Amino acid sequence: MRSKQLKPSSSEVAATAPAPCAALVLAAGRGRRFGSDKRVAPMADGQTLLAATLARVQAQFDQVWVVIAGHDDAQALGVPPAVKVVRAQQAESGMGASLAAGIAALADSPCEVAAVLLGDMPWLAEGTLARLREAATAQHIVVPECQGRRGHPVLFGQAFWPELAQLQGDQGGRVVLLAHPPALRVIEVEDPGVWRDVDTPADLLGR
């Protein structure tokens, strides 16, 4: 049985100013199930999938970093100039390697929280991102939950960055999350965008 986690009220969260937060968008994978490089797949508005995701998070975070593979062409992927690029040389080994590379790049950042997102989630509501930011601190891990299902982004306080930087292969941030139940803050949202992503071309169709 899953233990019940702290779900702070809006008044409790708003009592202090949000901690400086960087968005870390993981986009080193091409998406094999998609059949082609889904990062450059066009959406209905003409934007590519990755570009649309980056545009959404740029409006809400102090810094935005995108993790791509060492051989990727950031310009061809539509990465805006204001977005910082991290190259994960071991990206082929799994998401854990990409996440570790991204966290390592934040070492000199003034931010105290890293919001880990996937590069194929352009439907996240800006209001959801703002609520999660408000709940984040350097000592907590913040996770959104919609209709009983948890999703992304997961916001990791700086206290957990050393563990994230040690991840390898297919190990994801869930390993760190499960190791620190008392630090977890689950925020209930009415936003299916927290778990809606793109695995096949059909997923790009409208709601």
Rank of each mutant, 00 (worst) to 15 (best):
D45K: 09
Q147Y: 07
L164I: 00
A23Y: 09
P8S: 07
E190V: 10
A183M: 05
H71T: 11
G78I: 04
D62R: 07
A97F: 10
V143Q: 14
L26M: 15
A52Q: 02
A105C: 06
Q60T: 12
P20N: 09
A76M: 09
G127R: 10
W123I: 03
V83K: 05
E190F: 10
R196P: 02
E112D: 13
P42T: 09
S98A: 13
H71Y: 12
F160E: 05
P144V: 11
L155T: 04
E190W: 08
P81W: 08
M43G: 04
V83P: 01
P81Q: 10
D73H: 10
T200V: 12
M1T: 11
A51L: 01
A135P: 04
R39P: 00
A44V: 12
E112Y: 02
T48H: 07
G193Y: 01
P192D: 04
D203V: 05
A15Q: 14
Q5W: 14
P144G: 06
H71C: 06
T48F: 03
G172S: 13
G96P: 08
R196C: 10
A125D: 15
K38S: 12
P181A: 05
A179Y: 03
H71G: 12
G119A: 00
D191T: 06
D45L: 10
D199T: 08
V154W: 13
V186F: 03
D197P: 00
L117F: 06
A15W: 09
A15C: 10
V176G: 12
P42R: 10
